[in-house]
Design a protein around this nucleic acid. Structure first.
Lengths: 344, 344
DNA sequence: TTGAAAGCGCTAACAA
DNA sequence: TTGTTAGCGCTTTCAA
């Protein structure tokens, strides 16, 4: 009872060789012209003996795991949580399992998260890359391991990726604010080299320019990555108090910045949109259902996930070996967080 | 360049046998009295050749993967997302990787999610079990595979588990509402046999009784599991409209019910807490930061995760083989969603 | 202090 | 149509 049944056991019981059993169990009975009677016997025996193939042995032999690794910043974040869910959903359809890791948990640790997944021999990887990951990514590319980057990418790296048009997303946001009459638009973003953020910032600058608004760099707050939630709120609060009266609208470049921002605004007693207008990149439950609803630049999370899995599986199956780039569009969801400016 | 370096390669380069290399690389050089010079040579060679052990071979040989499987309802849900994050964090500390699966994605599929993880030979499992999982769980127990249930458990199954005192949590909530003067307290919950929900419902009933309030079963709305978000909102909305005027407070027994509930209330134009008071089991960003803040029964998610990993790893290391049960306490977080009742 | 060799469970090339 | 066998990369017993 304790040991698992192996192919050998089945072969013994059926009175045939290992090969026959292996063939039948891999669904190649017909192809190999095993008699139907034999095939049926083996199949039912396998079921009766509760046979479950040993994946190590299989993997050792074939080099395949039917598993893909997913690396995101933080699985508890709305964007990445949903992304993970959809990735799993889509992967499941195509016969793959997902192994996920949050890179944020492992920041600064000696052990490298990507290496760890490589060690586990995933068939491929979907990665929201952090800056520290570049060397490992280069190696992945060099070794031609199937990989798809999401949310951001390295321009200098020839990998497939799925992103959105961040510049346009930001531009839309600023245009929207400007149309409403806002002239003192602050930006709260992260201090990072990651493309998606760089693009969001440049979209902001573009937007100002197109609306003939000056770019005031003191209205741009760049916050360090990886701060605790409390610290994040505190930083934003300080910025807001320092700029009291000089801002009539704020654009947050991500989900968690926006959430922290709302908390900060709440703490200093600013009312949205009466005292200040707010717009955010990324949607979530709070923005959607809170009062007031927050107007957002929304990403097509499900499509991103679906595309990423699709590209990856295509790479894995070698049908396609050139890299592919998918750039999706964001959409503005108008809610109640933007007003005409009060001070003019 | 294409093939990975194996122990054999290192042995060849070092001019020693496989055994020696294996010993050194497993840190048993001292123990086996390998000369320091040799050990050093092998180690540096391994690094230089970028050696990464093949986990299949290792697993095949040792039966260990240093991986634990985590099964939750839905990774994009606030509670489970955070749980997953903390599980990963804690597992990482103890040298384990996590493989997660959402059971909701796989409901009704022929392929069984737990079996799938078993196939992948996890060292152990942390599971938020669904009702359909019972047979598989029984097998896990019979085969003495390390497993810890979370959030809910099967009383008839001798497994370790980590939960909270759901009955008390609900009781606290109802007490709180009753103290505020509410007498017409509705319950919105799921239609399920899962213990945690059964307990939350009985805590509600207890609470009514203790406060000498009648139990009106038409004020209890049980909603099917696995509905789409839209359907969920619609069901709640219908319930609310049907019971218009008969309810002065609602208690939602979970996160996603509460979120859908807020959406429903929003749609029918009910103001919280003026028109109706709201209390919810589980916290999240929307409840915490939305206006008004929602008063909640909060679970110690991080402790749950930590305990679960702790129990599991102890089981895996065989230090302890009896099952352990951990029951944690919830805490009420008072915000602005509960008022004195309007109609009396 | 180190090496030879068996074997974990499976697949696939080759044989019959 | 089915069987024999090598070997995937690693650990570990036994031997030297």
């Amino acid at each position: 009872m304790t040991r698992k049944t192996s192919i050998k056991d089945i072969a013994a019981r059926a009175g045939v060789s290992l090969t026959t059993v292996s063939i039948v169990l891999n669904g190649r009975a017909r192809e190999m012209k095993i008699s139907d009677a034999m095939a049926e016997k083996i199949t039912s025996l396998a079921k009766k003996m509760n046979y479950r193939p040993n994946q190590f042995a299989k993997g050792l032999r074939t080099g395949k795991t039917n598993t893909i690794g997913l690396i995101v910043d933080d699985i508890s974040n709305y964007f990445f949580g949903h992304l993970a869910k959809f990735v799993e959903e889509e992967a499941d359809v195509l016969g793959y399992t997902v192994m996920f890791c949050s890179s944020e948990n492992n920041e600064g640790k000696s052990r490298n998260i990507l290496n760890m997944l490589v060690d586990k021999q995933m068939d491929g990887y979907i990665i929201a890359p952090t800056t520290s990951m570049l060397p490992e990514l280069e190696r992945l590319v060099r070794e031609k391991k199937p990989a798809v980057l999401i949310d951001r990418y390295y321009p200098q790296l020839d990998t497939s990726y799925v992103t959105i048009d961040n510049t346009k997303g930001s531009l839309d946001a600023v245009n929207y604010l400007a149309k409403k009459g806002h002239t003192k638009i602050a930006l709260v973003t992260n201090e990072t080299d990651q493309v998606q953020m760089v693009q969001r910032i440049s979209g902001y600058a573009d937007g100002l320019q197109r609306n003939k608004l000056p770019f005031d760099k003191t209205l741009v707050k760049k916050i360090k990555f990886g701060l605790s939630d409390e610290k994040l709120v505190k930083d934003i609060r300080q910025f807001l108090t320092a700029k009291e009266g000089e801002i009539d609208a704020i654009f947050f470049t991500s989900n968690n910045l926006g959430i922290a921002g709302l908390e900060a605004l709440h703490m200093i007693g600013k009312k949205i949109p009466d005292d200040i207008s707010v717009l955010c990149f990324d949607d979530n439950d709070l923005f959607r259902l809170g009062t007031p609803g927050i107007t957002v630049v929304s990403q097509p999370i499900k499509t991103i996930a679906k595309k990423a899995v699709e590209l990856l599986v295509r790479q894995i199956s070698q049908v396609q070996s050139e890299t592919e780039h998918v750039v999706l569009l964001t959409s503005m969801i108008e809610r109640e967080s933007v007003n005409q400016p009060v001070s003019k």
